[in-house]
């Protein structure tokens, strides 16, 4: 059963990702990106990471993909202007990506990992909460400050300054 579900989510994830890089319409690319993110949420469910699957849906599908759609809409003249999306070096890019894939494939096929057969206790949400406010409290606070800085920075960068009165 599980391999079957894995293949369905793989088709969603990898097919969506292929759609992102091959479609000519940027708007469709963003919709393919949503499909890929949803498949990844399924991956996380299969990996016993239910909380992460919820975060994936809320943050990636709900926030980042919608943000990208907004940016595409705001720069729509680029979309309708019928020019190719690929640059001149796309062949080299394809070769680099393919070489990277086949070289890195040697790692999962050859390395023997120190696998563990224990099964998680199923209360990973409790463990996550304890870890975030325990041993990972400083990175947690730093990330919250980073998000605040990014929020303010994004507003200042994207603000239209043309009709602001200078005092």
């Amino acid at each position: 059963m599980e391999p079957f579900v894995f293949f369905i989510f793989s088709i969603l994830t990898l097919g969506g990702a292929l759609g992102v890089v091959t479609t000519k319409n940027l708007y469709y690319a963003a919709l393919f990106l949503i499909m890929s993110f949803s498949g990844m949420a399924g991956y996380f469910v299969l990996l016993d990471a239910g909380f992460l699957a919820a975060v994936q849906i809320v943050v990636y599908v709900g926030a980042i993909a919608v943000l990208i759609l907004f940016a595409i809409m705001l720069s729509r003249k680029v979309m309708t202007r019928n020019e190719p999306l690929l640059n001149r070096q796309w062949g080299l890019g394809l070769a680099t990506a393919a070489i990277f894939f086949f070289v890195m494939l040697a790692v999962p096929l050859n390395v023997k990992w120190p696998l563990s057969n224990e099964v998680s206790s199923g209360n990973e949400l409790v463990q996550l909460g304890l870890a975030f406010l325990g041993s990972y409290v400083i990175p947690f606070e730093v990330v919250s400050i980073l998000l605040l800085v990014a929020l303010i920075g994004a507003i200042i960068l994207a603000r239209d300054t043309s009709d602001v009165e200078v005092e």
């Binding site: 890089v21 940027l26 595409i72 680029v78 690929l86 070096q89 796309w90 890019g93 680099t96 990506a97």
Partner: peptide, 18 residues
Amino acid sequence: TALFSIGLYGVLSNKNAI
């Protein structure tokens, strides 16, 4: 790995910033 390679191809071969 396949997903990373697809993303790498997208980064290297597109000219649209989005």
